[in-house]
Simulated assay, not measured.
Amino acid sequence: MDIDHRDQLVSGVVSAEWLYEHLDDPQVAIADCRFSLADPELGQRQYQESHIPGAYYFDLNRDLSGPVGQHGGRHPLPDVGTLTEKLRAIGVHSSNSSLENPDLENLGEPTLVVAYDNSRFAFAARFWWLLRYLGHEHVVILEGGFSNWQANYPVSNAIPEPKVGSFVPHVQGDRILDIEAVKSRKDRPGVVLVDSREGDRYRGEREPIDPIAGHIPGAVNYPWQMVTTSEGQVRSLAEQQQHWAELAHVEEIIVYCGSGVTACVNLFSLEMAGIRDAKLYPGSWSDWCSYL
Rank of each mutant, 00 (worst) to 15 (best):
E239K: 08
L77S: 02
H5G: 00
S11R: 11
L23H: 09
L134A: 07
W129S: 05
L270M: 15
M272W: 00
E109K: 08
E137L: 12
I159H: 00
A273L: 05
Q46F: 01
D4N: 15
S259M: 10
L270K: 06
E21M: 13
R206A: 06
P160W: 02
R235T: 02
H75D: 06
G69E: 14
Q241A: 04
S36T: 08
V250D: 11
W128A: 09
D195T: 10
Y222L: 14
G54Y: 03
T82S: 12
P160E: 09
E180M: 11
Q225S: 10
L23E: 13
H75W: 04
D178Q: 06
L134W: 05
H71K: 12
G12K: 13
G108K: 11
L112W: 03
S259W: 04
R6D: 14
Y202D: 03
D7V: 12
G190N: 09
E271S: 14
S156G: 03
S184Q: 15
N152E: 12
P189W: 13
A245K: 13
S98I: 01
V155A: 11
L142P: 06
E231T: 11
W288R: 01
S97W: 00
F58G: 05
V182W: 01
M1T: 07
R132W: 06
R132E: 14
F127L: 15
D25M: 06
L193N: 03
Q150A: 15
Y153M: 01
D195N: 14
N221V: 06
D7H: 11
R6S: 15
R132D: 04
A124M: 09
R126M: 11
D63V: 07
V250Q: 11
P154C: 08
P282Q: 06
H136D: 02
E143N: 14
S156E: 11
A238H: 05
W224I: 05
A181I: 03
H71N: 13
V28E: 02
Q70W: 07
R203I: 01
A115D: 01
G72H: 09
Q44A: 13
G260F: 05
S269N: 02
R62G: 08
R126L: 10
E252I: 04
L131F: 03
L237F: 00
L112H: 02
E17P: 00
C264M: 10
G232N: 04
E100S: 01
G173M: 10
A248N: 02
